[in-house]
Design a protein around this nucleic acid. Structure first.
Length: 551
RNA sequence: GGUCUGUUGGUGAAGUGGCUUAACACACCACCCUCUCAAGGUGGCAUUCACGGGUUCGAAACCCGUACAGACUACCA
């Protein structure tokens, strides 16, 4: 087709497109940023929530833009109606916000390079496609779905590359008259790329994470505009990231296969290429083997899961940081007082293969997080959690604030704080003995009851010996003395040496008291617990224990 | 089938040709400390880096082949 005909065709196909490329090029000038500043973007579909993989991606975008003094923007990629749900955009902003990932530009906060919603950019895409038609790099294709399916089947059978290319691209050389006839018949069409590539040529693409990659040149007539005039991801990506001046395209590595296409589009359109960084998927081990974390099968893939289960957001962020850069973990271990933002992340410390999502490790990070918080802080955060997911417990917490904070502070002042809580919901379970209401309800159900303890012995200890005002050492000396007086060894060692001389050892007395007071054989420091409860409540619990074993 | 990319303990990984007797962290096991638990301490957990060949004085690292795994192969993103 001659240039003149192509111009006629362009006009025929896009009569409503009045602007030309220059109009948009001027509208979105180069960003004025310092050297090395990265412009990154996150482009979710409005599916209503963010899943772990996207959270990881947006976390990268955010971190790299921030530490380089650049810009991170959020672009809603809603070119496929099927993927959109009502209020889907709000859900995404909500999830990101919870993780403190705040875009500098977006459809909500605005920005000079908008609109930040692809469905509002149709004219822009069509302007560039119109130009491509004029240049002979794109054409309308009238093939039906059935025709394309037949071609695919044929290609599958003969085991060759699947797609519309070479002689399979039957409409690529239609004459202007043939196109007009089809249009007159009212046939539906898409706009395809008229790929100038040859698969025999090799191209090389540099990736910030994966390094040099070689591919055969792209030679397929990929769809650019769908029959409803809406762009495919490929076209939208190239045009948007050019116009919005993205410097680093950070995205999942499911995209590397279409890199040759994107490179070609950048070349044809005369745009400068951005840097690419393709991140490894987050995977999960399944009976079938290792696979990508799936939002349908795996609850932990949903970002909201952590909120519901009660794992602090900060812990999830720390975990994300440890899988983002392999050297983060060690750095953080040596710089516990620093924040995630103080660490300098780099592309070359990112994993190339997939990363198995490790809930155990997350749990450990979370435990450490809790152990470093004061009782007051843990109380506050747990209360917030309970208000959302366990209203009744929230009420109980508020009624017992003073006591609870004391319990949560047990053994906090040492440099080896306890690590027994990994999520907010653990607090209710772990500290049920801290609150009379819960403890009475529980009524020793947590104790297996194999051993029956001597109630009168423990009662006499509490009444006659226990002094809540003394130091921990004195308390323990007293209990040892009490043990000896009553025929128990003052240490397990002593008992082991002469088991026949004693009824047991101090540990047994402590165990008895512990079971009566907490309803379990394991607990934090006993004296601390007894001190907070006070003598009366301790005696009350001893009575309850007595009733319990008599039944 | 094709195109890419990987493969270092149970897991995440460090490693860029001699400093590797393979770091570190999680998990697990044992012991120590100890009134229980948690924490902490000590040690164990890859005689070897998927396999086979090559290059080299020297290879987990470089090259080739094989196997396996993953991603993509849409008018989805």
């Amino acid at each position: 087709m001659e240039l003149k005909e192509r111009e006629e065709l362009a006009e025929l196909l896009f009569p409503n497109i009045k602007h030309d490329r220059d109009y948009y090029e001027k509208m979105y000038p180069e960003r004025n940023l310092k050297d090395g500043a990265m412009v990154t973007r996150f482009g979710p579909s409005p599916t209503g929530f963010v899943h772990m993989g996207s959270l990881f991606g947006s976390f990268c975008d955010f971190v790299f833009a921030k530490q380089s003094g650049g810009v991170f923007f959020l672009r809603i990629e809603d070119t496929d109606q099927k993927r959109s749900i009502e209020n889907g955009v709000e859900g995404i902003f909500k999830d990101l916000d919870a993780f403190d990932i705040k875009p500098n530009e977006s459809s909500i906060v605005g920005g000079k390079y908008g609109p930040y919603i692809q469905s509002e950019r149709t004219e822009i895409y069509q302007t560039y496609v119109k130009d491509l038609i004029r240049q002979g790099f794109a054409y309308p294709c009238f093939m039906s779905e059935e025709e394309i399916n037949e071609i695919r089947q044929e290609q599958e059978l003969s085991k060759i590359k699947i797609g519309i290319y070479g002689h399979y691209a039957v409409d690529r050389d239609l004459s202007l008259n043939e196109i007009k006839e089809n249009l007159d018949k009212g046939l539906e069409y898409v706009i395809r790329l008229k790929s100038p590539g040859n698969a025999k040529n090799e191209i090389e693409v540099m990736d910030c994470i994966k390094g040099k990659m070689k591919f055969p040149e792209h030679d397929m007539d990929t769809v650019l505009l769908k029959k409803d005039g809406t762009p495919t991801y490929h076209l939208a990506h190239v045009i948007d990231d050019h116009l919005m001046h993205t410097t680093h395209v950070i995205r999942g590595d499911e995209w590397v296969a279409s890199l040759p296409l994107h490179v070609q589009l950048f070349q044809i359109l005369g745009f400068k290429m951005p840097h690419y960084a393709h991140t490894a998927p987050i995977t999960k081990k399944d009976e079938g083997g290792i696979r990508k974390l799936s939002k349908r099968k795996d609850p932990e893939a949903k970002v909201s899961y952590y909120d519901e289960v009660g794992i602090p957001i900060e812990a999830v962020k720390l975990y994300l940081a440890t899988i983002l850069n392999s050297n983060f973990e060690e750095w953080y271990l040596n710089n516990q007082d620093k924040k995630i933002e103080d660490f300098t992340f780099s592309f070359d410390k990112m994993a190339i293969g997939g990363t198995l999502f490790d809930l155990d490790k997350l749990g450990n990070i979370s435990k450490t997080y809790f152990s470093r918080k004061s009782g007051e802080e843990v109380f506050k955060e747990t209360l917030e959690y309970a208000k959302k997911f366990d209203k009744d417990y929230a009420r109980i917490l508020e009624e017992n604030k003073e006591d609870m904070e004391k319990f949560l502070n047990i053994e906090k002042d040492s440099d080896r704080p306890r690590k027994d809580i990994s999520k907010y919901s653990d607090v209710k379970e772990e500290f049920s003995y801290a609150i009379d209401e819960l403890f009475y309800k529980e009524n020793y159900s947590k104790y297996d009851g194999n051993k029956k303890f001597d109630v009168s012995l423990i009662r006499s200890y509490v009444q006659d010996v226990l002094d809540l005002e003394v130091s921990n050492e004195k308390w323990f000396d007293d209990i040892k003395e009490f043990a000896l007086k009553n025929g128990y060894a003052s240490s397990p060692k002593e008992y082991k040496q002469n088991p026949n001389n004693f009824k047991g050892h101090v540990g047994d007395i402590c165990e008895a008291l512990r079971v009566m007071v907490t309803g379990r054989t394991k607990s934090p420091d006993l004296f601390s617990i007894v001190k907070i409860l006070g003598k009366n409540r301790v005696l009350e619990r001893i009575n309850r224990y007595e009733n319990f074993i008599e039944k």
